[in-house]
Design a protein around this nucleic acid. Sequence first.
DNA 1: CATGCATGCTCAATCGATGTAGCATCGTTG
DNA 2: CAACGATGCTACATCGATTGAGCATGCATG
Lengths: 343, 343
Amino acid sequence: MAESDGNSAKRPTIYDLAEIAGTSPSAVSSILNGTWKKRRISEKLAERVSRIATEQGYAVNLQASLLRRERSRIIGMIVPKYDNRYFGAIAEQFEIMARARGLFPVITCTQRDPDLEFEAARELISYQAECLIVTGATDPDRIGEFCAAAGVRAINLDLPGSNAPSIVSDNFTGARDLTALILSRIERDFGVIQPLWFIGGRGRDHNTAERLRGFKAAHRQIGLSVLPDRIIMPGYSPHKAIAAMGTKTLADRSGLFVNSTITLEGVIHWLNEQRHGSGDIRLGCFDWDPFAALLPQNVGMIEQNVPAMLEATFELVETPPTGNVRLKIPCILRGIDNYPVNP
Amino acid sequence: MAESDGNSAKRPTIYDLAEIAGTSPSAVSSILNGTWKKRRISEKLAERVSRIATEQGYAVNLQASLLRRERSRIIGMIVPKYDNRYFGAIAEQFEIMARARGLFPVITCTQRDPDLEFEAARELISYQAECLIVTGATDPDRIGEFCAAAGVRAINLDLPGSNAPSIVSDNFTGARDLTALILSRIERDFGVIQPLWFIGGRGRDHNTAERLRGFKAAHRQIGLSVLPDRIIMPGYSPHKAIAAMGTKTLADRSGLFVNSTITLEGVIHWLNEQRHGSGDIRLGCFDWDPFAALLPQNVGMIEQNVPAMLEATFELVETPPTGNVRLKIPCILRGIDNYPVNP
DNA sequence: CATGCATGCTCAATCGATGTAGCATCGTTG
DNA sequence: CAACGATGCTACATCGATTGAGCATGCATG
């Protein structure tokens, strides 16, 4: 970044304002931080100093202020991506709810990169965050360990860890219900009962494992067993999904369980290329997207209950739990009955 | 937030580490911030202190560090929402590019609320941000004025202001080209040449005004004039779009210019309710969304060139311009030819 | 053996805001 | 008129990291 011009005035401090107003820095400080009544500063001086502060474009130096205060009221969050509705909603709701509680939210995006996750966590702690919400981290325990050593509280959101309280969706039940829905729609629309494909995610990832467990449970419930070669876990990005599916052939009347909206992008791309565009496929997707819901093949989406998850998060923030809780928040199944695709 | 437990150790400082290591705080400081070679600290001591720092979970207190340093390297950004691909991409790219330049990005989301925008800007300046990227602000000049008074550089992104350099998409050309595309598709698919509807945004909003200008220019180009009662500007949110359209009747073979993906959500909802689902409508939308692109009625989307916009932004960050530049970044028209909707 | 220089550290002032302790002035009361 | 309380301020230490100045030691050189 360019050095600030020599001529452009430096940011004014309480010492500058005190000199202009002909008073002391202490008075200025207490006037600007609202404690002036308690300190018996006259209304007259308070008004004059406030006016000068506005004129000079004063903004408190939080570095200095927070250094002196015992609490920062900063609450940090790391999120992996901003490229889908789920994490977007988490970030937005988090900021709103934090502000409503008089806290200062700071969010950092970490690109699903374990090292960047760790560096970002360290950075937020350096900012004196009093609490860290670790969202969708690939290695939450590494961060949890550091937080513990630094004496900062950590809460895992979306993906659980073993050394800090965790709040996750009930992935098993959500996936089981979505799988059951897809299976029943295939039967209704195509008249066939057959195992589905599972596409997206990583096998070591807790949520993917849980969803696969739900996926299998729903199959078992109607006497089907899952075919191992129909489980494709190449990660989350669209192009990885496309590459992984490139090797497969998908019969008509197939059903797909798609593990995330970002994977769904790749899946749809692939289906369109394979001329599977129309009525010969049914799919459901874990996570909600308003436009994806309109895809003609789509029979249902799982919406994770972001407000409930964050409500639970802030409850843990406000009253730290004893022991290592793991909360499961039920998901919302949004069944879809789009216009008929087989006219 | 709950007070930190009395028993949990406070965060260690360089003084704590110095005592443990049996050395001075200065030595510890220089070892941990990388200036120790210049200060002729022995490798042996450096290693020992580093080890102790790791053991103790030390993280530098940025409040103290930044207070002393002359530069913060913090670069702030405010964005209105995280609920669409455009702002999500801006936020994500901004963080990546800032980090690549050795800067510390801090982003705040302001809900399109002018007061919150201003408060957030003030807060970022209080964090000692050296530069503020003001994205999609409803009142950028208010923030620009404050930044000028505080001696902090501001750059307007997405929506222009009059007192700071601005980087905006070429909304006029983008809208004109998209409008021309929709008009030509209506002629091709329906055999009619008629004015389109314009839906979404606010009339006083610069981008909406520019897009409307492009919308009108494209009509003029083929000898049509725009009908004033077909211009609906109720804001951006889906439910506002639905409410505003509730009063209108849309003939078959109509064409719609939709001003944002978030408005499009409401439009699609309304169309489906009105049983306009299938092949009797064509629309185009300003802003890109991968799933919205698959809507059968959709004939094209404008993708704003986020990488180019941020490239230009960081160029301004690095070499502050003289005078009040306003850069226009061309958009990308993504024409879509979805599977036939009139089988 | 005095001098110079390199090595390996420590000391202390500093950044800006905060808050406790304290000072000066004024009016009131016994 | 002394004592006291209220009013309206100021002085100063403090938070943790940084950094220029400086100190002590060891070794080499004339």
